[in-house]
Design a binder for these strands. Structure first.
Lengths: 338, 338
DNA sequence: TCAAAATTTGAAATCGCTTTGAATGATCTC
DNA sequence: GAGATCATTCAAAGCGATTTCAAATTTTGA
């Protein structure tokens, strides 16, 4: 069913039908009703490709995922959030997977040249993110989930990683802990650097010196966390508390603690960052897990909103959002045993 | 940079340039080289919308995700697999998220009417899947990850769930276990029904009677599994072995076992189904986890391949693939203690 | 009542590509 | 050397929508 068919069926011109359906004012209200009713009854929907060609808008937001680090539970939740919002609009999400930064850059070039998307979302930025520079260069609108520093204004939405870790570290220090391990994200990633900043700030505020052996930088998987925590627990004096970068990390640390014959919430404390996965609830763990909490799904939803605002003409300089992070204390963080 | 601009730049007609780039035979080899070189140098890429309108192919595969059950680590891996394959072709993945079956059906109608995708992939089918019926009706090509029975031939790729659970159950029975709990997927989902079949077959082959109290049907989350396992462990006599539907489930069961003061691999055995998540390695758990293993990422890759084959004209009746499932025995499954 | 203004409709151009059908030379064949 | 064949190129017609500009009809105002 093409516009032409619908128009013939109605005995009207394509022009009028198109206008009626798109809410233009210069069409008789009676005709509009008749058109709308018939279109609905016949299940007419404009051909997406034709519409895109005619309007010059592709009606899609791009999301490039680097298989190696990006995919996994975080991205899945983020995607759910994005989808939840754009689903209500006439916008789709185009997912492209690549294997390296170079491939990712190439993907943006392709996407830009072929005008496949109206905008993209950039996630897990580094301190000086080449992808942002490229997109600026290509004049592809984007919103960043996180922050970067490239000398040009970049629209972003981020959570207060520094503040979150600073408070969590401060709390552990207040409980008497002095050997606090930080299982952080990869070096160079903005969020990881921000967390390190918060960690160091809290330590130095209490006059506790920093021990590099107590910091790990890696992607957030159960297994890597297990190994890192295991190694750290063999140090003497051993750490008495852990800051876990994600719930996956927390699970790995948890296993290491148990395997070392120690008990979480007694011999060792832990505060984990919780991105709020529906299938991994800090409240239902045993012992329940103290967390710094911020829903990554809501972030996805908000990023989608911001992108639509930018496409709607909102100046990029005005798109900056820093979300506070809750500190939720449960059983896994306890006073240091003497 | 449009085709027109490129053509003018080269002093050729759009026709010739288009043909040169698309590998048609009726163009001088010297011209083709010159065109290809210039196009590459100038970074020309055809406008996606125009190309789609002209060819009638949208160049995208649709994936509709139901937020409630679908999203999560499984889908993330599956998506990675799909993306890995289509990335090499000129095909993208369009992700749409919805909240209910009705919404999902509506989404397919929209997608079909607006010709947004050339095909879709259907996952987590039920025994009689309405989505498959609808897509057949709408004449939207699709490949199913799993199986259904709707009286029409449906192209599918599935793993041998029945065989996998039958062997796993059989193995536990051989180890002396008689009270074996099955934490299965939702009733009505084909894979869950298939697993139940395998479970029952193994039990009855050994003359062990089925106890409905030892079977749970739900989505695969850590938390739900924890509660179900906890309740089952309070039964008398209690189960001595668990079949966990996924690695998330296994984590929940693990916690319940520990909380009950029991030890996995000694007091209680477990075999979990492993979809092979890069961040959750059965081999690195403690104790290491016995699993029925099949990579969901590879499944995604294969499904993408099959879709392209179908779009290439392969008859749907010829697209049926049943993958065997490995049974990997590790420490979590042990002989029943007397 | 009649010209002017407002309302409503339609024909045709446009978006950027592919593809049909025709045209132009060059090469063969006898 | 003329007619047929082949190789190469191009102009123009789609694809299915939006949108510009013009036309037809109705309403308004004096």
């Amino acid at each position: 069913m093409r516009l032409k068919d619908l128009a013939e069926h109605l005995g009207l011109s394509q022009t009028t039908v198109s206008r009626a359906l798109n809410g233009y004012p210069e069409v008789n209200e009676a005709t509009r009703l008749r058109v709308a009713e018939t279109a609905a009854r016949l299940g007419y929907r404009p051909n997406a490709s034709a519409l895109r060609l005619a309007t010059g808008r592709s009606g899609a937001i791009g999301l490039v995922l680097r298989g190696a680090d990006d995919l996994g539970p975080h991205m899945s939740e983020f995607l759910a959030g994005m989808g939840g919002h754009v689903g209500t609009q006439e916008i789709d999400i185009l997912v492209v997977t690549v294997n390296s930064l170079e491939d990712e850059l190439a993907a943006y070039r392709r996407i830009a040249a072929s005008q496949k998307v109206d905008a993209v979302v950039l996630h897990s930025p580094t301190l000086r993110d080449r992808r942002a520079e490229l997109l600026l260069d290509l004049k592809v609108p984007f919103v960043m989930h996180g922050r970067t520093n490239i000398g040009h204004p970049v629209p972003w939405m981020d959570i207060d990683n520094t503040g979150a870790i600073e408070r969590a570290t401060g709390h552990l220090l207040d409980l008497g802990h002095r050997r606090i391990a930080l299982l952080n994200g990869l070096k160079g990633r903005t969020f990881a650097e921000h967390r390190e900043l918060g960690y160091l700030a809290a330590l130095s505020a209490r006059g506790v010196s920093f021990d590099p052996a107590l910091m790990g930088n890696s992607i957030f998987t159960d297994e890597i966390a297990f190994r890192q925590a295991q190694a750290m627990l063999e140090l003497r004096p051993r750490p008495t508390a852990f800051l876990a970068g994600s719930m996956m990390t927390a699970l790995g640390v948890f296993r290491a603690i148990r395997q070392a014959g120690l008990e979480l919430g007694k011999d060792v404390s832990m505060i984990a960052h919780d991105d709020v996965f529906p299938y991994l609830n800090a409240d239902n763990m045993y012992p329940t897990m103290s967390t710094t909490r911020s829903s990554i799904r809501q972030a996805g939803m908000r990023i989608a909103e911001l992108i639509l605002q930018i496409l709607g003409g909102k100046p990029v300089e005005d798109v900056h959002e820093l979300w506070p992070v809750e500190l939720v204390l449960r059983q896994s963080s306890a006073p240091l045993l003497q």
